[in-house]
């Protein structure tokens, strides 16, 4: 390229402006998280002072004490979220890998029907199943239980299809047929041969379910009634609704509740982005 020096300078300025504005936009995007962290170090008076300043104050300990002083057992609620997420992800992997595998490798009576019903149910907006879902939970006597939060969402059609697609394209059937000839049982073939090959899609599924369970709110809201059973986001919402909402404590709690997912995101953002957009990429 022989462009004149003037053009080259302008190109450089343009590039700098481009990077500058994207840097600024990135900062603005992540700013609310920083702001929550900053507010959690400030006292009530400081939070309610108008004006913009980014100083970090020294009331973190006070806010923590206030957070511990509310009528909610905050760390127990955190633990509930962790427990529900862990159980949910674990059972999701088990149930969805099995179901997706079955759809991918076997031919059986009713396959198309079952597959079609699963597919059709994806079209039903979750809003509509809210009331029926609550009814069935009540009917089964599962109100205020953690089981009702995670178990029903461990076999969602989307994840089953994801696994199915993956198995169809990557797991070689002759390998399984060979193992069958050697006398291996069906479950052993699944466990020893297919499952290790399914690791990438299971990773994707684990991330999707992790984000889903950690952030879920509506279902806990309608199922969990006692403070000891509630999950962390639910409790933060209730705290903010208290008269004279203790903003410092709420922001500290919010920051703590976001932290696990943000740390994970910082370590594995590439995998997380790829997993959470995986519905689109295959087109």
């Amino acid at each position: 390229m022989n462009s004149s020096p003037v053009v080259r300078i302008w190109e450089k300025v343009g590039t700098a402006a481009l990077y500058g504005s994207f840097g600024l936009a990135s900062l603005i995007t992540i700013f609310p998280f920083l702001w929550a962290a900053i507010l959690s170090t400030r006292s009530r008076e400081e939070i309610f002072t108008p004006g913009i300043s980014l100083y970090i104050s020294n009331h973190l300990a006070d806010n923590y004490a206030e957070l511990m002083n509310t009528s909610f057992p905050f760390w127990l609620n955190m633990f509930n979220s962790v427990k529900i997420t862990a159980l949910g992800v674990l059972f999701s992997l088990a149930f969805m890998s099995m179901a997706g595998y079955a759809f991918a490798v076997y031919r059986f009576k009713g396959k198309n029907l079952i597959f079609g019903i699963f597919l059709g149910s994806m079209m039903v907006p979750p809003v509509l199943s809210l009331i029926p879902f609550a009814l069935i939970i009540q009917f089964l006597g599962l109100m205020d239980s953690h089981l009702a939060i995670w178990l029903p969402f461990t076999a969602v059609p989307f994840g089953i299809f994801l696994v199915r697609q993956y198995v169809v394209t990557t797991v070689p059937l002759d390998l399984m047929e060979a193992a069958r000839m050697d006398g291996a049982g069906e479950f052993r073939i699944f466990w020893n041969i297919a499952l290790p090959l399914m690791r990438p899609v299971l990773g994707t599924l684990a991330i999707i379910q992790f984000v889903f369970f950690w952030n879920s709110f509506i279902i806990p809201l309608i199922v969990l009634t006692s403070a000891e059973k509630q999950v962390v986001v639910q409790v933060l919402r209730s705290m903010q609704g208290l008269p004279n909402s203790p903003w410092g404590a709420v922001m500290l709690g919010t920051t703590i509740s976001i932290l696990p997912i943000l740390i994970f995101y910082a370590l594995a953002s590439k995998q997380m982005i790829a997993s959470l957009t995986s519905g689109a990429v295959k087109g």
Binding site: S26, F33, V211, M251, I258, I273
Partner: peptide, 24 residues
């Protein structure tokens, strides 16, 4: 990747948590 990473970040966090920050 850094820019997309920043833009994507709100997506992974809890809606309730960020709604609390926005309420403020």
């Amino acid at each position: 990747n850094l820019f997309t990473g920043a833009f994507f970040m709100p997506f992974v966090t809890s809606t309730v948590a960020v709604a609390l920050v926005f309420t403020n």
